[in-house]
C-alpha cells in the first residue's frame, strides 16, 4: 500500500505479537493484553470511520469463516474485519452441506485446513467445539461462539464500548440480565469484566441462572429492580422465544413484566446508565424499543461498530504472531 490512512502509523505501532496461536477464551488473556487489544481496536475505530479503510496487514492471508450456526451479524463483522486488513475471506456454512452427509466437525475442519487458511473463525452449537478444532488444525482458530461456553470477541467489543463510553472499565458496576444459563456472551463478559476490575451482577429468573453462579465471584439477583439498582451498565441478553412458552418462563408477557428492560426499571440504575445488548434483540420481550433506540442511553449500535474494530485488533494481533512463526 502506498500511503497509510491518517493516523494509522500510530495504530500499527500498537500491534503486538500475540503470545498464543488461538483466540479461544477470555480466560487465556491477562489484563495487559486486554488493554493492548482495546488500544489497538480504538485505532481501528478511527480507521473505520475514514473513507479509505483498507490496510495490508493481512495481505496474502486467508481468513475462513466456518459458521456451523447461522449468524449474520458476527459473520459479516469478521468478514469486514478480515477484508479491511487485506485478507482474502471465505465464508463456509457447513450446516447446509457436508455435515448433513455425515462428516464430523473434525473431518470438515481437517479438510478446510488442508486448503491452507491462516485464520479460521469458528462458531458451533457445542461448548468446547472451537478448542477441539484448534487441537486438530495448523492455522489460528478464533472462537466466534461455542455452544453455551464463550464468545470472547463479543466480550472484547463490549469492553471497548464501555471503555469508550466511560473512559474506564475498572470500578464500573455492570448488570448482565436475562438468560445467563444459555449465554456464552454472559460467560465471556463475566470473565473479562472481572479481570478488568468491574463489579459484575447477574440478573434473571432462577430457571435461567446456572447452578452455583454465585461462586463465579458475582452477585446473583432474581429481582431485576434490585439487580440493576445503581448500575453503570445494564447488559441485556437475548432470550430464545421458544424457551419462554412455559419452558423456562411462563410466558413472554410475564417475562417482560419482571425481567424486561423498560424506562421504569431503568430509572433505578445510575443516572448516567448505558444499556447494551449483543443482538439480535427481541423488542418488547427482553427490551423495550423506547430504551433500545434512545441514543442517550443505548450503546447497542456502538457495539456493532466496535465489533468490527475489536475483531480487527484480534486478527491483527494473531497475524503478527503468524509472521514471526
Amino acid at each position: 500500500m502506498t500511503s497509510l490512512p491518517t493516523g494509522m502509523t500510530e495504530v500499527l505501532g500498537r500491534t503486538f505479537p500475540f503470545p498464543r496461536r488461538h483466540f479461544l477464551s477470555v480466560l487465556d488473556l491477562n489484563p495487559v493484553e486486554v488493554s493492548d487489544l482495546l488500544d489497538l481496536a480504538d485505532g481501528f475505530v478511527s480507521l473505520n470511520r475514514q473513507t479509505s479503510k483498507k490496510l495490508d496487514l493481512l495481505k496474502g492471508r486467508t481468513l475462513m469463516n466456518l459458521f456451523f450456526e447461522a449468524s449474520t451479524r458476527t459473520q459479516s463483522s469478521f468478514e469486514l474485519a478480515g477484508k479491511r486488513l487485506g485478507a482474502d475471506v471465505v465464508n463456509m456454512s457447513p450446516r447446509s452441506s457436508s455435515i448433513s452427509k455425515g462428516e464430523t466437525l473434525i473431518d470438515t475442519a481437517v479438510t478446510l485446513n488442508a486448503m491452507q487458511p491462516d485464520l479460521l473463525v469458528v462458531r458451533h452449537s457445542s461448548s468446547g467445539a472451537a478448542s477441539l478444532l484448534s487441537q486438530k488444525v495448523t492455522c489460528s482458530v478464533i472462537n466466534a461462539g461455542d455452544g453455551q461456553h464463550e464468545h470472547p470477541t463479543q466480550a472484547l467489543l463490549d469492553a471497548l464500548s464501555m471503555r469508550r463510553a466511560f473512559g474506564r472499565i475498572a470500578g464500573l458496576r455492570v448488570a448482565i440480565c436475562g438468560d445467563v444459563l444459555h449465554s456464552r456472551v454472559a460467560r465471556s463478559n463475566v470473565g473479562l469484566l472481572q479481570m478488568m476490575g468491574a463489579e459484575v451482577r447477574l440478573v434473571g429468573p432462577p430457571t435461567l441462572m446456572p447452578a452455583e453462579a454465585d461462586r463465579w465471584g458475582v452477585e446473583v439477583f432474581h429481582d431485576m429492580r434490585k439487580g440493576i439498582a445503581g448500575c453503570d451498565v445494564v447488559m441485556m441478553l437475548r432470550l430464545q422465544l421458544e424457551r419462554m412458552d412455559g419452558v423456562m418462563a411462563p410466558s413472554q408477557r410475564e417475562y417482560f413484566r419482571f425481567f424486561g428492560l423498560d424506562r421504569e426499571k431503568l430509572a433505578l440504575a445510575a443516572p448516567h446508565v448505558r444499556v447494551m445488548h449483543p443482538g439480535p434483540m427481541n423488542r418488547g420481550v427482553e427490551i423495550d424499543s423506547d430504551v433500545a433506540d434512545d441514543p442517550s442511553v443505548s450503546l447497542i449500535q456502538d457495539q456493532v461498530e466496535m465489533g468490527v474494530a475489536a475483531r480487527m485488533a484480534v486478527l491483527a494481533s494473531l497475524a503478527a504472531r503468524l509472521e514471526n512463526a
Binding site: 461448548s127 455452544g147 453455551q148 461456553h149 464463550e150 460467560r187 447452578a211 452455583e212 453462579a213 463465579w216
Partner: peptide, 15 residues
C-alpha cells in the same frame, strides 16, 4: 453434573 464447573463450561448438566 450440575454445579459450578459445568456452569462455567457451558455444559448441559444433571443435578
Amino acid at each position: 453434573t450440575e454445579g459450578e464447573f459445568a456452569g462455567r463450561m457451558g455444559l448441559p448438566s444433571v443435578p
